[in-house]
């Protein structure tokens, strides 16, 4: 695990370490099994194309979960993810690398908690933000 990040280490505008995901159709099937989302657009190419999609697409909730992982990796063992908000603006396809990224937008102390707000997003290989969102986390303080 990476070294614990503290509130004092964080500055507005800084990017957090990114998380790369190579999503395969196998992972989509694993996610379908784990989540119970068996909608065929996520594993049946013919079905997906019949609904007008170019092919099988990555589940929105899987992408949101990756963003959850991006945040829980960053806040470490002493932090807590408090809020994750994600909007699905573009589709992602298995076989393409997806990168989860985040940038600090604000930090403040509220009710004794050291709160950091972030902009988060998934990015496809063409640099397009397919799932932009925001997050709120609590970090430990050295103070």
């Amino acid at each position: 695990m990476a070294k614990q990040v503290y509130y004092e280490d964080v500055e507005e505008g800084m990017e957090i370490p990114s998380l790369a995901k190579d999503v395969t159709t196998q992972q989509l099937v694993k996610w379908a099994g784990a989540s119970g989302d068996y909608y065929q657009i996520h594993y049946d190419k013919d079905f997906a194309q019949a609904t007008g999609l170019p092919g099988v697409i990555v589940h929105g909730r899987l992408k949101s979960s990756f963003l959850g992982q991006l945040l829980s990796d960053w806040v470490g063992e002493e932090g807590m993810v408090k809020k994750v908000s994600v909007q699905h603006r573009g589709m992602d396809f298995p076989g393409e690398q997806m990168t989860c990224k985040g940038k600090v937008t604000k930090k403040h102390v509220q009710d004794g908690e050291h709160i950091v707000e972030l902009e988060i997003w998934t990015e496809n290989p063409r640099g397009e933000r397919t799932a932009p969102g925001s997050a709120v986390v609590a970090l430990p303080s050295r103070g």
Binding site: W31, A34, S35, G36, D37, R61, S64, S65, F66, G68, Q69, L71, S72, E77, E78, G79, M80, V81, V84, P140
Partner: peptide
């Protein structure tokens, strides 16, 4: 056990896994 919550917890994404 040694971390903030003192034991195994669910990752944030668990609640995104709708049917689970």
């Amino acid at each position: 056990k040694k971390a903030r919550h003192g034991g195994i917890v669910a990752p944030p994404g668990l609640l995104m896994a709708v049917m689970m």
